[in-house]
Nucleic acid binder design. Structure first.
Lengths: 148, 148
DNA sequence: ATAATTGCAAAGCGTTTGCACCCTG
DNA sequence: CAGGGTGCAAACGCTTTGCAATTAT
């Protein structure tokens, strides 16, 4: 858990839930707790395992339902770095992209995306009106490059 | 999605297979034929259905195996516009990105990506060495915008 | 109180695999 | 004619759902 000092100023779990009209339950708080402690991203299964590891007994179905609820209201980001796995992550507020290390799977946020103009222009040439975009960078992080 | 009979200037199926060291079989040629006729992208299941529609009897497993083989050798692109579905598409050669219409699912290729320098620079600030990137634009195409 | 939330286990889904048979090179 | 390719059906792994019990507000 060392490296980037990207302190993610996250709101208190309880607030996060209430703000989105979700009841504050032991299970949901536990899931948010795990997400907050996770440096990178995690799948529902991984979160479920992490909960078990912390002695928190939460049904797998509940983890799925919680993540679905949280991501549908934008409280957490659902990433799809891998072809057939959805990963979840508690991200910073604004629009941003991710840098993913292909070796250790570390995820780093790239703040401030200034690509909008560029993208809009290219899309316009094809008659498209862009509503959203995603950029994903895959590579090797400093640590992994060092180990080489 | 399937059904369009718009042919794109693609290399001959047989050549494409041979060039990648894959045996030319009735099934593989049929899959490539469907991909070539497809304006947008298609899932393995859709391709299987399209084959059935054309009277070509090809096992679903074979479709999956064929698409896996073709995409692993770069003959076709595997796109993941949707969270839990992999779509395949016969794309042009070079590095490029896609514009996807969120209404009709039309896919348009954006040729010539000149983002490398920009991306590499941003990644470098985080100690990353970028090996690849993907950009995906979602929006509304001209036709769908018109229908409003 | 009472509607939302949870747990469990069963059901779903798309995808993969084992294996005998078939066909290309 | 040898080894890759195919079909079928069973196996899989992840995710979702039905339903009764539980819990937040």
């Amino acid at each position: 858990m060392l490296g980037e000092v990207t302190t993610r100023a996250q709101p208190q779990p309880a607030d996060l839930l209430e703000r989105h009209g979700l009841r504050s339950t032991r299970q949901r708080l536990a899931v948010l707790e795990v997400l907050a402690a996770e440096r990178d991203d995690a799948t529902a299964q991984e979160i479920h395992a992490a909960l078990a590891g912390r002695g928190k007994r939460v049904g797998l179905a509940t983890v799925y339902r919680t993540l679905a609820a949280l991501s549908s209201c934008g409280a957490v980001d659902a990433l799809s770095h891998h072809p057939d796995e959805v990963c979840y992550r508690l991200c910073s507020e604004g629009h941003h992209h991710h840098l993913v290390c292909e070796r250790c799977h570390r995820v780093v946020e790239l703040a401030d995306c200034d690509l909008d103009a560029w993208l809009a222009e290219r899309a316009r040439r094809h008659g498209f009106t862009v509503s959203s975009h995603s950029v994903e960078l895959t590579g090797t992080c400093a640590e992994c490059s060092a180990v080489a």
